[in-house]
Design a protein around this nucleic acid. Sequence first.
DNA 1: AGGGAACTGACACGATCGTGTCAGTAACAG
DNA 2: CTGTTACTGACACGATCGTGTCAGTTCCCT
Lengths: 198, 198
Amino acid sequence: MSSKTANPSARQTQLLEAAYEYVLAHGLADLSLRPLAEAIGSSTRVLMFLFGNKDGLVRALLERARADELALLARLRHADRPAGLAQAAEQVWAWLAADEHRPLLRLWVEAYARSLVEPDGPWAGFAGTTVDDWLDVLAACQPQPERDGEDGAARRTLVLAVLRGALLDLLATDDERRVTAAVHRQLALLRREDRGNA
Amino acid sequence: MSSKTANPSARQTQLLEAAYEYVLAHGLADLSLRPLAEAIGSSTRVLMFLFGNKDGLVRALLERARADELALLARLRHADRPAGLAQAAEQVWAWLAADEHRPLLRLWVEAYARSLVEPDGPWAGFAGTTVDDWLDVLAACQPQPERDGEDGAARRTLVLAVLRGALLDLLATDDERRVTAAVHRQLALLRREDRGNA
DNA sequence: AGGGAACTGACACGATCGTGTCAGTAACAG
DNA sequence: CTGTTACTGACACGATCGTGTCAGTTCCCT
């Protein structure tokens, strides 16, 4: 056996990339194999062969989307290593507010919502996993004395909530001025708090 | 003509209520007429007669869900009349965190996400409308000198973001302790800010 | 050269979808 | 009694869905 999803072949990753761009444009809700295959110059037969069935394809697409998310998280952990929650939040928001990330973030919201409503299927656990991912990386940005304990958990939970709530607003209204102003206001509050604790 | 959706008959509202409970439990994503009709003791024929077509039914269901939301907003405007954003946010969060509202809020997130991905269809404008609804009622809770101007807009945008982000977290993790702690932390920051401005 | 693995095309199957058609019943107005 | 209006049942249509079947091609490995 070769377990297609475990060690993907070149053709598989190539088609997955094309399918990924397709769902970024069309959404996952009413994804159908035949239109997708036709759009990316393939066939349902090939998709079935490479991904097993539709659920396998959707799972692969969600993992692909999550890879983009994890890339940002990894940058936050190492390369740009922000010191403190405020700095981390500022960098994350710059990424979230960038125009070129809108399709990905719309897809993210869609998968998040779906995994809340239907705990079964390929979506299973998407929402919970992504919350944990983000809380982990935010925790890594907190200084040591603050990180542990419920207070630190509440602080990073709050930062995550602000970023996600602002994202929802931005995706709906496209009013970047107002939403970014709100986020920056929160950043100011966070920094004031940091200075107070220092 | 009798314009079914304009002045609904008794039978229509009765069936709509049953269908509403059904979608609260099963979600809107893969809603299908035949299983729905069978579950609520009706038939596809009747649903088509009363709501025109599937889109009409979905529209009616979304309006029904929005009615629940508007009921809360109306209470905030008049009966409980909170003074200041912090008090308003506290009351809203108590409502959002209540167990019995989970199905409604899951449905809300689903509709919000879908309206972002597919701007056409029955979902059209749901996300934008709900953002405006909430910003309006939050504005009504702000004192007069603060309400106008970009600072006031940023403040209520921030409150809305915290509430919605916290809601997303709560729906995914069901960890009410941690999320509520985060919200209350923000409420404390808000009140401190209010005292500073007074 | 040959054989097996990877990949692809053409087509059909059964299920389910939204919707249309034709009729039928109950209530109520004239 | 009659006609109109509101509502409902039974059934079929065409489209589309995911998936299975059978065959072919390409290409690398020994």
